[in-house]
Design a protein around this nucleic acid. Structure first.
Lengths: 135, 135
DNA sequence: ACAAAGTATACCCAATCGGTACAGTATATA
DNA sequence: TATATACTGTACCGATTGGGTATACTTTGT
């Protein structure tokens, strides 16, 4: 069970942007070089981050990217969800029809998984990009 | 980010075995039918569980499977790891060489991910198959 | 008008997932 | 001791996902 590589790159990109003066634009190319991320792939990831309202993009000659909100307002959970969608943990947490036993409500495994997912989400949400740098 | 289907089946199989009198053998076929798991696939999963010391197998005419230890001694983490290996969360947690920034030790993202993984592991380890049934 | 940025869509190869097939081995019982 | 029954091991298979690239296009500052 792991996060995918795109998510890792997204973490790095957002972390990089968090270290910049508020509102400063940076081209994808520079982020890519600094963070050693394939440029084309990074552009794709940045589009997801933009769609999720984490990053703002500006086109044209001196365009680039900047954070759409304060680093403190962006959590690791936000980034994960922007890139790979919500954490599912298990098919049957998403679609009860997928549960081949089909008695979700009184399935103790389901209950445990539900609670584990919740813990994981909370944990991811507890890290914001302002605090990440410090310590 | 999710657990795979084999792990889900493994949960169900172990849960099923946990509900049986200690030491009672059950054929894979019966587990498969009860839990609606493809038989061949279940057999494969059971081999992983046996290799991990969660389940014991007996061949021959009235063979089958039984838990290798008390339900209380088996956690969801044990089952996850038996089936899909340890939880990695991120490439660079496994192999520092994979970290394209290569300064793992002082990377705040790495530190956060490390801690998140730990929380997840603890959470998974907090559910054992004796308690799952009750409540 | 043109170069420098981002956008959109489509594609590609490799790895993993979910599962099956086949050939083999152990064992209880007739 | 033959045989049916149950597990084992390896190899395979089609579909999906992961990680990334290509191509064509749009926006914008100078």
């Amino acid at each position: 069970m792991k996060l995918n590589q795109a998510t890792d790159y997204a973490f790095r990109a957002v972390y990089y942007l968090s270290g910049l003066p508020k509102g400063q634009l940076v081209e994808a190319k520079l982020i890519a070089e600094t963070e050693k991320i394939p440029l084309r792939f990074l552009l794709k990831i940045l589009r997801s981050l933009a769609a999720a309202g984490i990053v703002e993009s500006y086109r044209g000659v001196s365009g680039g990217y900047t954070l759409a909100k304060e680093p403190r307002e962006i959590t690791m959970k936000d980034v994960v969800e922007a890139v790979e969608g919500p954490i599912e943990l298990n098919r049957c947490l998403v679609d009860p029809g997928e549960c081949n036993k089909n008695h979700t409500a009184h399935c103790p495994l389901h209950q445990a998984l539900f609670s584990i997912r919740q813990t994981l989400n909370k944990e991811l949400a507890s890290y914001n990009f302002a605090d990440l740098g410090k310590n």
